[in-house]
C-alpha cells in the first residue's frame, strides 16, 4: 500500500512539465526514503534523476518498495486536471496495475480522483558515482534559461567554459557567433540573483543546446540552477525543489570526432 500526500501539489505538476518532453515512459520508484525517478531520453544522451524526499510529504506511507511504470504524457494529462492550489495524493496497492491521483481543493469542497493504468517498463538503472567537480556554477535559473534560448537561435551547440574570470557560454552558426560571459557577483538583497563560481580547475565542455533548452523547463521549480562540470564528464544541471528534493539532468558532452 502506498499513500503519498503532497500539500503543494503544484510541485508535482511542475516536475511533470519539466520532464515529459525529454522522457516518454519512466518508472517511479517509491521507498522509505522517497519518491524518485531515473530515466534516459530516447536517444540515451541525457539522464534525468528526480528525488522527492519522504519528509517533504505531509503524509508518506510506503509499506514496501514499489516501482510504478508510467507514461509521462498520460500522467501529465491527469495532473493538468489538478488545480494549482490543490493537495495531491498518490495512491497505489502493492502489485496493482493502476495508480490513483487524488486532488483536493484547499477548502476541501472539491475532491477528484483520477485512476491511471500502469505499464511495464524495462529500463536499466544507472549507478551515478559521487564526483568531485572541477567547477560548480550557481546562477539564477531564469538567466540560464535566457542564455540557452538566445544562443540556440544562433547555433546548435554551446561551449561552456569556467575560468577565474567567470563562466562563458559560446556558440556559432551560419549567421555568426555569440559569447555570453557571466561574472561572479554577490547580491546583498537577494541570494537568488547571485552568480557564484567555485572552481578548482578551469573546465570547458561542449553541449547540444537542444537538451539544455529542454532542461530549462524546470526553471519554474527553482530560482537558481547549479551547473557542475568536470573535464570530459557529463554536466549536471540541478534544480532544487523547495524543502523536498531536487531534479538533476545529466548531459553527455560532445567530443571531437
Amino acid at each position: 500500500m502506498l499513500e503519498l500526500r503532497l500539500v503543494q501539489g503544484s510541485l508535482l505538476k511542475k516536475v511533470l512539465d519539466a520532464i515529459k518532453d525529454l522522457v516518454t515512459d519512466a518508472n517511479f520508484d517509491c521507498s522509505e526514503s522517497g519518491f524518485s525517478l531515473q530515466a534516459m531520453d530516447s536517444s540515451h544522451v541525457a539522464l534525468v534523476a528526480l528525488l522527492l524526499r519522504s519528509d517533504g510529504f505531509e503524509h508518506y506511507r510506503c509499506d514496501r518498495n514499489l516501482s510504478m511504470g508510467m507514461n509521462l504524457t498520460n500522467m501529465s494529462k491527469m495532473l493538468k486536471c489538478a488545480g494549482n492550489d490543490d493537495i495531491i495524493t498518490i495512491k497505489a496497492d502493492d502489485g496493482g496495475d493502476s495508480v490513483t491521483f487524488m486532488f483536493e481543493s484547499p477548502s476541501q469542497d472539491k475532491v477528484s480522483d483520477f485512476e491511471m493504468k500502469l505499464m511495464d517498463i524495462d529500463s536499466e538503472h544507472l549507478g551515478i558515482p559521487e564526483t568531485e567537480y572541477h567547477a560548480i556554477v550557481k546562477m539564477p535559473s531564469a538567466e540560464f534559461a535566457r542564455i540557452c534560448r538566445d544562443l540556440s537561435t544562433i547555433g546548435d551547440t554551446v561551449v561552456i567554459s569556467v575560468s577565474k574570470d567567470g563562466v562563458k557560454f559560446s556558440t556559432s552558426g551560419d549567421i555568426g557567433s555569440a559569447n555570453v560571459v557571466c561574472r561572479q557577483n554577490n547580491s546583498v538583497d537577494n541570494k537568488d540573483n547571485e552568480t557564484v563560481i567555485e572552481m578548482n580547475e578551469p573546465v570547458s565542455l561542449t553541449f547540444a543546446l537542444r537538451y539544455l533548452n529542454s532542461f530549462t523547463k524546470a526553471t519554474t521549480l527553482s530560482n537558481t540552477v547549479t551547473l557542475s562540470m568536470s573535464k570530459e564528464l557529463p554536466v549536471v544541471v540541478e534544480y532544487k525543489i523547495a524543502e523536498i528534493g531536487h531534479i538533476r539532468f545529466y548531459l553527455a558532452p560532445k567530443i571531437e570526432d
Partner: peptide
Amino acid sequence: KRGQQSISKFFRTQ
C-alpha cells in the same frame, strides 16, 4: 564536426 556521446557510457548499469 563534434560527436555526441551516450550518457550510459559514463555510468555503470546497476
